[in-house]
Amino acid sequence: MTTRLLILGATGPTGALLLDRALAAGHEVTALVRDPARLTRSDPRLTVVSGDATSDADVSRAAMGADAALVALGSGRSVRSQIASRSAAALIPALRAQGVDRVVVLSAFGVGETERQAGLLMRSAYRTVMRQLFADKAKADAAWRASGLDWTLVYPVTLTNGPRTGTYRAVPALRARGVPRISRADVADFMLAQIGDTAWSGRTAVLAG
């Protein structure tokens, strides 16, 4: 069944794979991007909308007619980015206004309660280098949980650029040792699968390879 999807973060390393998977599955996709020139993919089922994910008006315009939203926005190289909370503040009212109830959001393992599930080495990084970024993600995730939308939060462990394996784990909690990894392709696979699956509705899924 063809679904009309809104994808945010389609020019990022995980979002680009998500876009490819969605189009390959036959879905109609609207991608909201700041710079359309960065999106080199061309497909008759793809509509590219130029705009800012932190703008209510831009998101509302892109979300018109969508059945679900997939949020794969990244912070780039910034560890002080506030894109997670700023985009959530725009997305939640815009999705409500357009009647888009289902939303799958990419966050990160180590955010919020999952920090305590990480190994010693990773906890140290989360509490120092990643502290501000993860605090912002936690703020955004709390907003999604309180949004009233049909949300799923996705918390992958350390991301790699490896191939899609289809053998990853999705669990509510993970006792991690060392530095567990999962490919971005597997994360994209899981996120897209949630559009037609209610198993993780209103829940946080920790993903590990």
Rank of each mutant, 00 (worst) to 15 (best):
G51L: 09
D189R: 08
Y155G: 05
T54N: 03
L159I: 10
A146N: 13
D150L: 08
I195Q: 15
R4N: 15
D43C: 01
S50H: 11
T47K: 12
E28N: 10
W200V: 07
M122Q: 10
V71N: 02
L19P: 05
A53Q: 08
L5V: 15
L192R: 01
A31E: 09
S75K: 11
V79K: 00
G110D: 01
R21S: 12
A188P: 02
F190C: 10
L121W: 07
A193F: 01
A53V: 14
T128F: 09
V111R: 00
L39M: 13
V33M: 13
R86L: 14
R116F: 01
L73E: 02
D58T: 01
T160W: 03
G74K: 03
A143R: 03
M191Q: 04
R96T: 07
W144E: 06
L23A: 10
V29R: 02
P44T: 05
G202W: 06
M122V: 12
A37Y: 00
R203C: 04
L159M: 10
R181Y: 00
V129T: 14
G99Y: 12
A140L: 02
V71Q: 01
L106A: 10
A146T: 09
L91T: 05
L46H: 01
G196W: 03
D35K: 13
R102H: 06
Q132A: 09
L17H: 00
R184C: 07
G65R: 13
D136Y: 07
G110C: 05
R203Q: 14
R184D: 07
G162T: 03
A88P: 14
E113M: 10
S55W: 02
D52M: 05
M64A: 13
L8K: 00
P156C: 12
T14C: 04
V59G: 10
V129W: 14
A185K: 00
L23H: 08
G65C: 11
D67L: 11
T47C: 01
Q117F: 09
G112D: 09
V129P: 03
P93I: 01
T198H: 13
R131Y: 07
L23W: 02
R77G: 14
T3R: 12
A170H: 09
D136T: 03
T14A: 08
G148A: 12
P172I: 11
S124K: 11
A66L: 04
A138E: 12
L133F: 04
D141S: 04
A185Y: 00
S85H: 06
A72D: 04
R86W: 06
Y168S: 05
V171H: 03
D58A: 11
S147E: 05
R86C: 04
L6C: 10
T11M: 08
P13H: 13
T40N: 03
R116Q: 08
W151G: 01
D141C: 07
K139D: 11
G178A: 11
P93M: 06
Q98G: 03
A108W: 00
A94R: 04
T11S: 14
S183P: 05
L73Y: 07
I195C: 13
A125V: 15
Q132E: 15
A84W: 07
Y155I: 02
A188S: 12
V100Q: 07
L174T: 00
H27N: 15
T40G: 03
A170N: 08
L39W: 10
A138S: 06
T128L: 13
D43F: 02
R169V: 08
F134W: 12
I83G: 01
